[in-house]
Nucleic acid binder design. Sequence first.
DNA 1: CATTTCATTGACTCCAAACTCATTGACTTT
DNA 2: AAAGTCAATGAGTTTGGAGTCAATGAAATG
Lengths: 192, 192
Amino acid sequence: MKTKRQIQKEATRKLILDTAYQVYADEGFAATTNKIAKAANVSHGTIFVHFPTVECLIICLLERFGSEINEHLHILSEKDENLETFLAAHINVLIRYEDFYKRLISEINSLPQEAKYVFINIQSVVSFHLNQVIEREKDKIAIKDIPMHIIFNSWLGLIHYYLTNNYLFTVGSVLTEHKDELILNYIKLIEK
Amino acid sequence: MKTKRQIQKEATRKLILDTAYQVYADEGFAATTNKIAKAANVSHGTIFVHFPTVECLIICLLERFGSEINEHLHILSEKDENLETFLAAHINVLIRYEDFYKRLISEINSLPQEAKYVFINIQSVVSFHLNQVIEREKDKIAIKDIPMHIIFNSWLGLIHYYLTNNYLFTVGSVLTEHKDELILNYIKLIEK
DNA sequence: CATTTCATTGACTCCAAACTCATTGACTTT
DNA sequence: AAAGTCAATGAGTTTGGAGTCAATGAAATG
């Protein structure tokens, strides 16, 4: 059985991670530990009781984020979705984490190497599932004779372009606003 | 006529800008004024003689970069290129500035607002020229019935995706390596 | 040639962020 | 209930970068 102390400690750790997630989503990964501590209503030193360095905090956060996305997409691939509903589901997952994801793709290159690995994993999972769905749909939709990686990279490229250039298009959630347009036109692009 | 002093001052200013360009290309915009000063073989204070703040230095740098890209593309649009040669020319311009451009698209969201405006301008120019070329080619190539902005955003999305995820694909210049593949498949995508 | 101007210098200040650690007091153990 | 443990605290230390400014000497001026 867990002691009060253990429960408390785990709760604090979770609180710090949850708060860091929100603060980073709002301000980007340049946000300071000070901000996080204040937002979590925890003293500055407490952060370093739970994470030896900020870098560790960030990596831990990304790993947690990766698992969450993983779970969502895994559930998705169980049902036999068609291409359109799969793309919609993918966008819906991203909408759920939109602010954070936006920061992530925008700042991934200034994060530590380990963070990049976590990020590559996330993308691999999506790629794998898209691959499966398209394979399944081949007899229903005629898809152009283009390498799978280009198919995948144009999809993610398009989505990421809209996300990183958010400010060009809208003030709210780009994905919510352009979801249907993106899916529709992307399918048109890859169809024969 | 210019005095020795004026010439010297302008030369130093240019030296700082050129060096900053290289340092930022190598290390990203988080690189310090200290690094730039050392690389330019100039004292730290000199930078602030020419630019009141780092922010000003960066914006000046981007404006210069914008004009250069502008020039390249303008020359391009004079001749009547076809779609394939236009895309190739666009990639060639980007290859010329690849390291810097990569940093730019990757870190644009952490740069000051003014920098974003400069960046939007650069993209608008490319968009405009692509538009023209496609308009001209409409009777030669059958292009899908898709809004122009999606056509444009998929192109830039694809290119930017390859650039920001550089590390996934290659150690050298992604664009040099994937140029032909990207152009070929992109045209396949937008063709009927 | 004497005087003035001014581009350059680099040591200095200021500031903000990451990280430390002695102290506290609630919880656990005996 | 006394002794021991440890999560949390927050003031303090360290580090490093942006920006300042009095001093310097080469160039311009008269």
